Computed example of a mutant assay.
Amino acid sequence: MMKAAVIHTPGGPENLLLEQRPIPTPANGEVLIRIHAFGLNRAEMYTRQGHSPGVLFPRILGIEAVGTIVSAPSGEFDPGTPVATVMGGMGRTFDGGYAEYTVVPARQVKVVPSSVVEKVGWKILGALPEMLQTAWGALFISLSVKGGETLLVRGGSSSVGLAAAAIARHHGMKVVSTTRSESRRDLLIASGAHDVLIDNGSIAEEARVRYPEGFDKVLELVGVTTLGDSLKTVKRGGVVCAAGIVGGKWVLEQFTPNELIPTGVYLTTYSSSVEAFMETPLDEIALLVAEGKLHIPIKSYRLDQIVEAHHEMDESTACAKMVVVLID
Results as ranks from 00 to 15, higher is better:
Lys321Trp: 05
Val112Phe: 10
Glu130Tyr: 09
Pro262Gln: 10
Gly214His: 04
Leu128Tyr: 09
Arg185Gly: 07
Asp199Leu: 01
Gly192Trp: 01
Ser158Thr: 00
Arg42Val: 06
Ser74Trp: 08
His8Asn: 15
Val70Leu: 05
Thr81His: 10
Gly292Glu: 10
Lys217His: 15
Ile296Trp: 13
Pro212Thr: 04
Gly89Ala: 08
Ala320Thr: 02
Asp216Ile: 01
Leu152Asn: 00
Val240Gln: 00
Ala166Phe: 11
Asn200Cys: 04
Gly228Asn: 02
Tyr301Cys: 04
Lys146Pro: 11
Gly172Ile: 08
Thr93Asn: 13
Gly172Met: 09
Leu252Thr: 00
Ala309Asp: 03
Leu287Ser: 11
Arg59Ala: 08
Val196Ala: 01
Pro297Ala: 04
Arg184Lys: 12
Leu151Gly: 01
Thr102Asn: 15
Leu61Met: 05
Arg92Thr: 11
Thr150Ile: 03
Glu14Ile: 02
Ala193Leu: 05
Thr81Gln: 14
Thr179Ala: 05
Val265Gly: 03
Glu284Pro: 05
Ser191His: 04
Ile245Ser: 05
Tyr46Leu: 14
Ser114Gly: 10
Pro22Ser: 12
Gln254Met: 11
Ser316Leu: 13
Leu219Thr: 00
His295Ser: 15
Ala106Cys: 08
Arg154Met: 08
Pro82Met: 07
Lys3His: 05
Ala138Pro: 02
Lys321Arg: 04
Lys123Arg: 15
Val70His: 08
Ser158Met: 02
His51Lys: 15
Pro113Lys: 01
Glu213Arg: 14
Thr226Arg: 01
Lys232Ala: 06
Tyr211Leu: 09
Gly161Gln: 01
Val116Asn: 08
Pro53Asn: 06
Gly237Phe: 09
Ser177Leu: 09
Ile141Ser: 01
Val145Cys: 03
Gly50Asn: 07
Ser158Arg: 00
